[in-house]
């Protein structure tokens, strides 16, 4: 059973949804507390996040650094725009590979769903080409897709 959905919307959006068994408050905390983020936002097996800065307030900074322990690594920076505790987060982020990718504007909603949470993450990229590049790069939270095959494999 796959609980996650990932789809493209229009030319510049990517929408990811996922259900969790915990209430919105807990899921929200797991997205904003560095100690919790470091436990799960890791991507493929073998990667860790030794640096995790997350200032969960409007204007607050985000910085995640990943390493595979074999000399491979990259980092992400971002800023918070809006936070409605336990309900909604709006932030921008970019990957440094090491050149920065164009800004990804992300709204994350945490809606109560029975005793659990439905999380909806809506990303907005500056243009279609950037979205394609981001999906093709796929490093961001293991994000994926392509022009061609996305619909088929989801």
């Amino acid at each position: 059973m796959s609980k996650m959905t990932l789809k493209t919307e229009g030319d510049t959006h990517v929408v990811v949804t996922r259900r969790f068994a915990a209430p919105p408050e807990a899921v929200y905390r797991a997205h904003t507390d560095p100690k919790l983020i470091q436990k799960w936002l890791l991507g493929p097996e073998g990667w860790t996040m030794p640096v995790c800065l997350n200032e969960a307030r409007p204007g607050g900074k985000i910085r995640y650094e990943w390493t595979n322990g074999k000399g491979g690594g990259f980092y992400l920076t971002g800023e918070y725009l809006e936070l409605e505790p336990y309900r909604r987060i709006v932030h921008v982020e970019r990957m440094h590979l090491p050149d920065p990718t164009p800004d990804n504007h992300i709204e994350t909603r945490f809606d109560a769903d029975g005793t659990g949470t439905l999380m909806t993450m809506r990303m907005t990229l500056p243009d279609a080409q950037t979205r394609a590049a981001m999906l093709a790069t796929g490093m961001e939270r293991g994000m994926e897709a392509s022009y061609v095959r996305l619909e088929a494999i989801i």
């Binding site: 915990a22 936002l41 392509s146 494999i153």
Partner: peptide, 25 residues
């Protein structure tokens, strides 16, 4: 396709880990 499936798995893996974090919380 295989590459995309791999990346999708990485994302799903994140959220599976998050399930465990939430259960612990």
């Amino acid at each position: 396709d295989q590459w995309l499936r791999m990346l999708r798995k990485a994302l799903e893996k994140n959220y599976d880990r998050l399930d465990e974090v939430l259960a612990t919380m």
